[in-house]
């Protein structure tokens, strides 16, 4: 589903991501772990077309992000770490706007909005302006917006930050259910416990370099993911 091949991104002299290669299969939940500034967000933003990159290739379902970004974007959904949304809009107008942008049919958008806003308990607030929403509510709204168009790949940057325990549980349930139906998830997280329990595959990145990737069992062996992560973090790249 998502192929990142030899991705390199530089900011001036600084190499933010260096020759990174990852493959995410359909139906896979793929956790991307690393310390702050390791290159996770840069990689994610390159995948969703927010950042250009210097070398390598990213393809989504066989379509190059560089050559046909619009087709790629229509297949994916992106949830950023900080849900900056249009505060002048009401929740429902924002969701309808996103549905328009992704060309979702009227029937589909109605059913999806009802289903997911009920699930996250934000239906009654949909008429209110987003500026009146809490951080968690904005995050929930961003997640609902991401689910409206049935994406084949969902890319998330720290999706659990700001969510209450119930909402975090619901998101994990949605991820598991959608993954069963073939949707792939690629997300960054600092919560190793979540990564350990939720993910099929894990990649750990340090200073722009991939230091390990594989199934959760392959990566952690007989240790906890936390032990492995801390050990790898201590090693020189």
């Amino acid at each position: 589903m998502l192929y990142i091949n030899n991705l390199t991104k530089r900011y001036g002299q600084k190499v933010a991501v260096d020759n990174l290669t990852l493959h995410i299969a359909p139906g896979e939940i793929y956790g991307f772990i690393g310390h702050n500034g390791a290159g996770k967000t840069t990689t994610i933003k390159a995948c969703v077309g927010l950042h250009d990159f210097d070398e390598g290739e990213i393809t989504i379902n066989g379509v190059s992000v560089k050559k046909d970004p619009i087709k790629c974007k229509s297949m994916i959904a992106y949830i950023p770490d900080n849900p900056d949304l249009y505060e002048f809009m009401s929740g429902i107008k924002y969701l309808n706007f996103i549905a328009d942008v992704y060309k979702v049919s009227e029937e589909d958008r109605n059913s999806k909005i009802e289903k997911y806003t009920d699930l996250f308990g934000i239906t009654k607030d949909l008429a209110n302006p987003i500026v009146s929403y809490s951080h968690g509510m904005k995050q929930k709204l961003a997640i609902v917006a991401a689910l409206i168009h049935n994406p084949k790949l969902i890319i998330m940057d720290e999706p659990f930050v700001g969510l209450d325990p119930k909402a975090a549980f619901e998101v994990k349930e949605i991820m598991r259910n959608m993954a069963k139906e073939g949707t792939a998830f690629f997300f960054s997280t600092h919560v190793l416990e979540v990564a350990e329990k939720l993910c099929d595959h894990i990649a750990i990145i340090k200073e722009g370099h991939l230091i390990i990737d594989g199934t959760v069992d392959e990566v952690k062996g007989n240790n906890s993911l936390e032990d492995v992560f801390l050990e790898l973090e201590g090693k020189d790249v």
Partner: peptide, 20 residues
Amino acid sequence: FVKTKYVEKRLKVRSARMAV
């Protein structure tokens, strides 16, 4: 903010350009 309770209404479908 004066809170308003959401009442489900028919959503208007627009083209992407018109949505923007």
